[in-house]
């Protein structure tokens, strides 16, 4: 149909030809995607390459960069604080992510039925995850677990939650688990898509409620569980704001998150080169972790569709 229109206009000058090219589907597709192509180059690829270069330099942002080869990387692996930060962050992610997914699933199972009040319930459980990323909530959390804060006052305890190396990290884990609401909503919408005919068939076969859950519900949710695990683990390994605001890595580095250590090296200790190297080590770790998670997919994730 396009050609019919084009034929009406006879002489194909340069402008005409440019116009015709512009009207082609492949050009249009490229034009529409141009913002992303530019953005990816300007705000993702270039910064990453720049930091790859700086990771091979002695560099403190203000002064010039001095090439020192892989020295920064050698230093990373000899750095006790690097291992400490990696351990703290790994522990945080390994504990908080599964807990979050489990809570989300349990609450979703409770809130999937539609009564008049369920929307209110869902809102109550969802609200923390909407507000949780804000500084306001981080401040709130800090005061709740202060020595004279809400938790001690309610339970009549005298524990310096944020002052002890054993407890501080759990305060941050609790903050993360508290925000299970958005995963819960995803589970609710997935649960609703499971056709009731499956359960009816199971009932005819005499399946119990528990069998229903493990043979029908859970397998059909595994793609969502997988998706949540991947996304939240990555975010968990990247946790920054809560650590920076609530504990600042203290006490004794027991809450020194990796991103926080990276930030400190770059800005507080003026080691942008070393900070960049830390960043690249983390990128490799996250990539490997994600790859491994995807490899395990075929063993437990149901992909048959409904």
């Amino acid at each position: 149909m396009k050609t019919a229109i084009a034929e009406k206009k006879k002489k194909p000058g340069i402008g005409e030809r440019a116009y015709k090219t512009l009207m082609k589907e492949s050009t249009a597709g490229f034009v529409f995607c141009l913002p992303f192509i530019l953005g990816f180059l300007l705000f993702i690829l270039i910064p990453l390459l720049l930091s790859l270069y700086y990771s091979l330099c002695k560099y403190n942002i203000v002064g010039g960069a001095q090439f020192i080869g892989i020295q920064n990387y050698l230093d990373v692996f000899k750095d006790d604080k690097f291992w400490k930060a990696l351990g703290v962050t790994g522990f945080y992610a390994v504990v908080s992510v599964p807990l979050r997914v489990i809570f989300a699933l349990i609450v979703a199972l409770l809130l999937v039925r539609d009564t008049k009040v369920t929307p209110i319930y869902r809102a109550m459980y969802y609200l923390p995850s909407l507000l949780g990323a804000s500084v306001a909530v981080a401040i709130l959390w800090k005061q709740m677990f202060a020595y004279d804060g809400l938790i001690n006052a309610i339970f009549g305890l005298k524990i310096a939650w944020l002052g002890e190396t054993d407890t501080a990290i759990w305060v941050l884990i609790l903050l993360s688990v508290w925000q299970f609401g958005s995963s819960m909503l995803i589970f609710v919408s997935n649960l609703k898509q499971i056709p009731s005919s499956l359960y009816e068939a199971a009932r005819v076969d005499g399946a119990s409620g528990i069998q229903n859950f493990f043979r029908i519900t859970l397998p059909l949710l595994t793609p969502t569980i997988f998706f949540n695990l991947v996304m939240q683990s990555i975010n968990g390994l990247m946790v920054f704001a809560s650590g920076q605001i609530i504990t600042g890595g203290k006490p004794l580095d027991s809450t020194l998150f990796y991103a926080l250590y990276m930030y400190n090296q770059t800005f507080a200790y003026n080691n942008a080169g070393y900070g960049s190297a830390l960043g690249w080590v983390l990128i490799v770790i996250v990539a490997l972790y994600t790859a491994i998670l995807f490899k395990t997919k075929k063993f437990w994730v149901y992909e048959g569709g409904l």
Partner: peptide, 17 residues
């Protein structure tokens, strides 16, 4: 990929840029 890539990971690279 950008969906999986959290902002924190490009925090310092972007700052330098």
């Amino acid at each position: 990929l950008t969906m999986m890539l959290p902002g924190e990971i490009v925090m310092i690279p972007r700052y330098l840029w």
